[in-house]
Amino acid sequence: MSTDSRLKRLLEAGEFVVTGECGPPKGANVEKLEKKAQCLIGYVDAVNVTDNQTAIVRMSSIGAAALLVRMGLEPVMQMVCRDRNRIAMQSDIFGASALGICNMLCLSGDHQKFGNHAAAKNVYDVDSIQLIDIVRRMRDEGKVECGDEIDGVPRMFIGAAANPFADPFAFRVARLGKKINAGVDFVQTQCIYNMDKFKAWMRQVVDRGLDQKVHILAGVTPLKSLGMARYMAKNVSGIELPDALIKRMKDAPKESRAREGIQICIEQIQQLRSIPGVHGIHLMAIEWEHKVPEIIKDAGLYPRPA
């Protein structure tokens, strides 16, 4: 079954796509959200809207995504399994679809321990793979999880995350295979700094023919500073940042480190473009949305296709 997703259309046309990311504000500040999103118009094909990322309470991904639709951007609504049971999830998917949202990303979600409500109860009624399966059945079979018929089928283009750097490494491709079997259409990877390991993962993906079954968008995040590089290397589980990159940031003169970070990012994008099976990039310029035009232009990815 088809959706109205432009992201889907471009991927199927064989375009090398660019998705961006926009974290909603910690409140109802629409202006702030619109300001961030404004920087992305024309430079990305779709924008991920995070769902209370790192378990910090923010404007809902569905609300923020609907605001982006109003601005003419195409959102990818993220949905985590931490905060909703299958009743709330399916209900929100209906609502999202009604508001013109046609891409979503199914995620486990960061544990609430990392956020500002560590005392909260978590849900995990379903996991991310089961969520993919639920959304696919809603779309393709017109049924909710219990088997009841749907009145007005949500046409979602279904995404998921993949982390090639998590453990056990040997199982990571098999896990991607499970997501494909559950019905995922595209995956966005964790941000890639260890290019060799990513290539090794992609080789396994291509060897198994999985790149024929799912669109893989490689995740990149520009390093804003040496501090950020060090922090990511040390504290963010599931991210591998080679020492050579930290050294490169350190060796750059202080005032041009931000540009160095962008330069690294552009080089990474160029490398990723040449890896077989990579169908696009997912650019997560966290709180650096205004740098997206520069990165996309310098990476030779501008203008974006219609």
Binding site: R82, Y124, D167, P168, R175
Partner: peptide
């Protein structure tokens, strides 16, 4: 599993340890 996942491991699994600790 800290998230009671039926189809794990999640992306937070690192060197045998859970993302929470």
């Amino acid at each position: 599993c800290s998230k009671s996942l039926l189809n794990g491991p999640c992306g937070g699994s690192s060197e045998g340890k859970c993302e929470i600790d």
